[in-house]
Amino acid sequence: MVPRNRSVRRTKAALQSALVDLLLEQKNIQAVTVQAICDRADISRSTFYLHFENKDEVLSSYLLQMIGRVHDALRAWTGSDDSRWTVYFAHIAHIAPILSSLTSDGGPHAILSRYERQFAVVMQDLVLPGRISNLDHTVSYQAHYFSGGLLSLTWWWVEQDQCATPAQEMSRRYHALCSGHLCP
């Protein structure tokens, strides 16, 4: 059983990596085809469809995996609150070219919406660690509010600022906004 799971993980990782490489080259999700992903990963189309329904699902799985990594890093953060989000913005700077490829033609909104919903779970866990529950509407609506604001600020940073502002400064700005303060 373990070798099969390992094989599945390797196959999915190869497909994700191929998609990311193609996005970096093409700069547009619409230009990337399933066949191009399969060719780059050296995996047959039938194997592709055993693991994913379409290229959006590959991208979604990649983004969710990245969110998991950021979530782990945010939970482990021991620095000051106003610099906590440096971890997030540093991560975004790393994947900004991929995110830019989603927004160049409007991008697949379903993927972005799923990213926001998943990040709301991360926010909720940061507010009440270990007590993630959809039943707690007070925490849930706040988590969605903050994750929506973070996602909006993220798209501004990627598209308008092109990640020119350092991650530490973006962290400070986000913290200030969450605290109800305007910052230059």
Rank of each mutant, 00 (worst) to 15 (best):
D72S: 11
M66I: 07
G130W: 01
W155A: 05
I111K: 07
S171Q: 11
D161A: 07
H71L: 01
Y88N: 04
S17W: 00
R9S: 02
Y62P: 09
S60I: 04
M66H: 13
L153Q: 09
R9A: 08
V87L: 05
A93S: 15
L64V: 03
Q118W: 05
G79E: 05
Q168P: 01
A31F: 06
W85Y: 13
P3L: 12
L135N: 12
A41C: 09
C38W: 02
V139M: 00
H51A: 09
D161Q: 05
G149R: 09
R131K: 10
P184Y: 04
V34D: 04
L151P: 02
F89G: 05
R6H: 05
E25N: 03
L102V: 06
A18L: 01
Y145E: 03
S7C: 00
G130C: 08
Q16N: 06
T138Q: 05
A73T: 00
A90Q: 13
S104K: 12
G130E: 09
D39W: 01
S140Q: 11
H71Q: 06
L128V: 15
S7D: 07
V58T: 09
Y115Q: 05
H51V: 07
R9L: 04
L128M: 10
H175I: 01
D136N: 15
F146G: 00
A36M: 12
S100K: 15
H181P: 02
L126N: 03
W77Q: 07
Q168N: 07
T33V: 03
N134A: 06
V32P: 07
D72G: 15
V127Q: 09
E57T: 14
Q118E: 15
N134E: 11
L126I: 05
F52H: 11
S113F: 11
T86Q: 14
Y174V: 06
C178L: 14
D72C: 06
T103H: 06
E116Y: 09
I29E: 05
H71W: 15
L151W: 12
V20T: 08
V58N: 03
H91D: 12
D82Q: 13
T47W: 04
V122S: 06
I67L: 10
V121M: 14
P166A: 14
V20W: 00
H94N: 10
S100A: 13
I132L: 03
N134V: 09
Q168S: 12
F89Q: 08
A110W: 13
A41H: 13
H137A: 10
S83F: 04
R10Q: 08
M170I: 11
N28D: 15
T138Y: 04
F146W: 10
G107P: 11
S147N: 07
E116H: 12
Y145I: 08
S46H: 12
Y174N: 07
S60L: 12
Q26R: 15
Y145P: 00
Q16T: 02
V34I: 12
S179Y: 01
V127W: 00
Q168K: 15
E169K: 15
F48W: 02
L15H: 04
A176M: 10
T154Q: 02
Q124N: 01
E25S: 10
A120I: 13
E25W: 04
K55F: 05
L153G: 07
Y62S: 04
M1F: 08
G180Y: 04
G68M: 07
F52S: 11
N54H: 09
S46N: 12
D136F: 00
F119V: 05
A110S: 14
D21A: 13
H91Q: 13
V34P: 01
T86I: 01
Q124E: 10
R172Q: 12
D82T: 05
S152C: 08
L150W: 08
